[in-house]
Design a binder for these strands. Structure first.
Lengths: 148, 148
DNA sequence: TTATATGCAAACTTTTTGCACATGC
DNA sequence: GCATGTGCAAAAAGTTTGCATATAA
């Protein structure tokens, strides 16, 4: 079992939350996911294992995990919530055309963190960096179109 | 009139959109605002001048301005859309306690932009950097509480 | 004049809430 | 055993859409 899963269930346990089978299934999926899932997507996937699971349970668990800092909310380009399950500092490259989100690790973020520490009395818990634009695949497609 | 306002109305005009009084009022408010308004907030403010203005008109105009790149959508901490009217690269410091968003200009962002240009075939249109944590006021309040 | 925008209201989507029952600890 | 969590369903919140009327260009 991955350490992300262990960290999530450990955090739930430490905070006095129960490790129900539904919650474990949600954590298992989140820990394995690299697709920045929406609540609906989590629901679909968990339902494969627990057909009777409720959307309310999914929302509940996502909220608890977010409050514990185990996942991070990111803005869907327009369509509601998405969750970041990768806690390593990184840049989200969000394609405005196909909607895909790619994680780009970068040392440059430590410089941003330093800038925040130095320039303000702000106590930083988490950093989110989103780059909006066209991914290489969509950029190629756009260029092809303009050649018509 | 501010150059932000001019830029917005100019962009609308260039794109073939009409400069209705409602739209101008929306732009006027956005250009002056430093409060990262929600659609509802824009609606309230514009209604002071146009009591009969419709929420649909507000959404319509915000969408058009966003598509033109004159404003940027940012994630409300939880409560729906918020708009960034400050197009200068900066860090949003979002307080998890009081919800306030403070803009912090920073040279460090050009390093992030370079990192994106160098490490991927991504065509970057816009960058959003959100720091989550406690603002100095709320941090002080939290510390006071823990002294009880 | 005429294509675009507006206001209104209804529809839709997403998220939250209340409550009776179930269950992890 | 009991506080917490679950499933269900209804409600609330947020956003989009359709259409008749108004209007900027």
């Amino acid at each position: 079992m991955s350490s992300r899963y262990d960290a999530m269930t450990e955090a739930l346990h430490q905070a006095g939350h129960r490790l129900t089978p539904q919650r474990c299934a949600i954590c298992r999926y989140l820990a394995a996911s690299r697709e920045h899932p929406s609540p609906e997507r989590v629901y679909e996937r968990v339902r494969e294992e627990f057909p009777a699971v409720s959307l309310a349970t999914v929302y509940n668990t996502l909220t608890v995990l977010r409050d514990l800092g185990e996942i991070i909310e990111i803005p869907g380009t327009t369509e509601g919530l998405r969750y970041e399950t990768n806690l390593e500092p990184h840049i989200n490259l969000i394609c405005l055309h196909c909607g895909r989100i790619r994680d780009l690790p970068s040392d440059s973020l430590s410089i941003v963190q330093n800038a925040i520490h130095n320039d303000s009395g702000f106590d930083l818990y988490g950093l989110r960096v989103d780059g909006f634009g066209l991914c290489s695949a969509c950029r190629t497609a756009e260029e092809d179109k303009s050649h018509d």
